[in-house]
Design a protein around this nucleic acid. Structure first.
Lengths: 329, 329
DNA sequence: CTGTTAGCGCGTTCAG
DNA sequence: CTGAACGCGCTAACAG
């Protein structure tokens, strides 16, 4: 194994000098910097991440926390995109990542969680899918013992950033698109889980829209469940001109109900998952770029680790009309 | 941070003794073992995995390699299950895991890959989705520089195990189920990718079956592509009594084609993905327990790391008749 | 059976 | 601007 020592010898400098070059310290002459870099190339040297972590204590080791307990295809898809984006970006930025699922942290006290994370030399947490009921994790973030980046959760402090799209605007925009095409006077809105942070934001969006446009709005809680959305639509769909859903999965449920009742109503969704391509008719939805969101989250983490303060990052979204593949009937 | 030293002081022994207790070395009296364990409990001590890895060089750090380059919902689902199973199990066994996607290793020479893995102190590789065209990775496994566990790929040597179901039997069994129900004289078999290791095994299964039952068999290469399966079915479906597919995704494609042509033929799939619940009619398929497969893979890795030799592990599968949810038409 | 000691590979003072 | 020396937390001989 070629170590920093070998590089130092080859470049004719001290090991500490090599270390400084590696970590972009100031006060290194261009000349020695070049010599060191040449030696690194020649020896095909890669710094040992583990030794580096041990020595510096500020490892740049980041844990990706995923709330993957529910098993739905749609969820799988979204989390996979998040994960792929986060891991690839982390490697680009030289961060060392490990993946942790919420389920692994259940039944463990917050102190034990901290001990575990410390034992892994973890200094940063990127959290996907946090909800209001994850009290332990929220407390963990609050304590500011780790640098945190939260996706779709609105906690910000000196050590914590959050990344999400403008939920209210997105919900507003997607339904607006439908209004442009169809005559709509009343809307049935199927909302997400009460303990989800995005739920209230999206609700704001639809409420603002209906107020502004003078539309009648009925709100029912669908909990992001396809089944519930379907039941709700069966019960209330007929009396409304359109069904707006807080997720694509619920939009599927709504569509099923409409089909069953043999009536037509425009439906809008949220997320833009590929699964939609397998199941439905045309529909407007909010397309989130999950990989990009993950990228931004990692960048934000990188900044935090380098001393920046936490902030809210709003990423962009699109309103798309899904062009469905053909359907099996 | 409470370290091994603190524990030693508290227990009134030397640090090395603590280390030995931690790592289950022989030749430690029950008495001191107890003292040390008490001290560990009292101090809430957790060994620093990073320091341990650095010192021992035999880190128990394992990389999960995933061939997640294609973006299909079905694939997402399968890989997510693999990942979840592997990571949870690894934590149980005290293995430290990092996740790597094939795409991160593209355009990198094999030597550089090795250097990278070494720099991460990785000693074991669990590989999901290896295919014959991943020449670099195959060479990597061949060199036996790392302990490897391959899922769905038949490489075995002293340092390499593989885990998979009995592909041939599964393919045989699932189609047999259909034969029990329907009058079938000729089968259109849509196979997987030529460079996939499972493809030829599954092919064997269907060939054996047809030979034994005296059925006419037409084989077309579907490359695991829904679209191709659909085209193939459009072209050849009508002249056969059933369509057997080497993946659920292709089964979806086949079903679409049948619907379009407005004819009925029984279809069989492979994998048992949840996505199927969203798209099709009833169908027999092979249900693989991806999480269990991942579990077994990690266990196998654990054994390899502890000196066992590589072997082939066959996991179980079921033949299921999917009860589809209702469909949107 | 237990303690002493020397590193693992790197980061970080602090003189020079 | 550079280098010697120490230490991160732990493991692995080697003594005792």
């Amino acid at each position: 194994m070629v170590s920093i020592k070998d590089v130092a010898k080859r470049a004719g400098v001290a090991t500490s000098t090599v270390s400084k070059v590696l970590n972009n310290y100031p006060n290194i002459s261009e000349n020695t910097k070049r010599k060191v870099n040449d030696a690194i190339k020649e020896l095909n040297f890669v710094p040992n991440a583990v030794a580096s972590a041990l020595s510096s204590k500020q490892s740049g080791r980041v844990a990706i926390l995923m709330n993957q307990s529910v098993q739905t295809t749609a969820i799988d898809e979204i989390y996979m995109q998040y994960l792929l984006g986060a891991i690839v970006k982390s490697k680009e930025l030289g961060l060392d990542v490990i993946t942790i699922f919420f389920s692994m942290l259940e039944d463990i006290s917050i102190d034990e969680i901290i001990v575990y994370l410390r034992s892994q030399n973890i200094t940063g947490l990127i959290v996907f899918g946090l909800s209001k009921s994850d009290t332990n994790l929220i407390e963990l973030v609050r304590r500011e013992e780790f640098k945190c980046v939260l996706i779709d959760a609105p906690l910000v402090n000196k050590n914590t950033s959050c990344v999400w799209i403008n939920q209210a605007k997105a919900q507003y925009d997607v339904v607006s698109e439908v209004l442009n095409k169809d005559e709509v006077k009343s809307i049935l809105y199927i909302s997400g889980k009460e303990n989800g942070f995005v739920t209230s934001r999206r609700l704001e969006g639809i409420e603002t829209l209906c107020r502004r446009m003078g539309l009648k709005l009925t709100i029912k809680q669908g909990d992001f469940s396809e089944k519930k959305a379907r039941e709700i639509t069966m019960k209330y769909g007929k009396n409304h001109d359109m069904i707006a859903c807080a997720s694509d999965l619920m939009a599927i449920g709504a569509m099923k109900a409409l089909t069953e009742m043999d009536i037509f109503r425009p439906v809008s969704g949220f997320d833009g998952i590929a699964l939609m391509g397998y199941v439905g008719k045309q529909m407007f939805t909010v397309k989130q770029d999950f990989r990009n969101i993950a990228d931004r989250a990692v960048e934000e983490m990188d900044k935090l680790l380098h001393g920046a303060e936490g902030s809210e990052v709003i990423t962009t979204h699109e309103i798309v009309r899904l062009q469905y593949l053909d359907i099996i009937c």
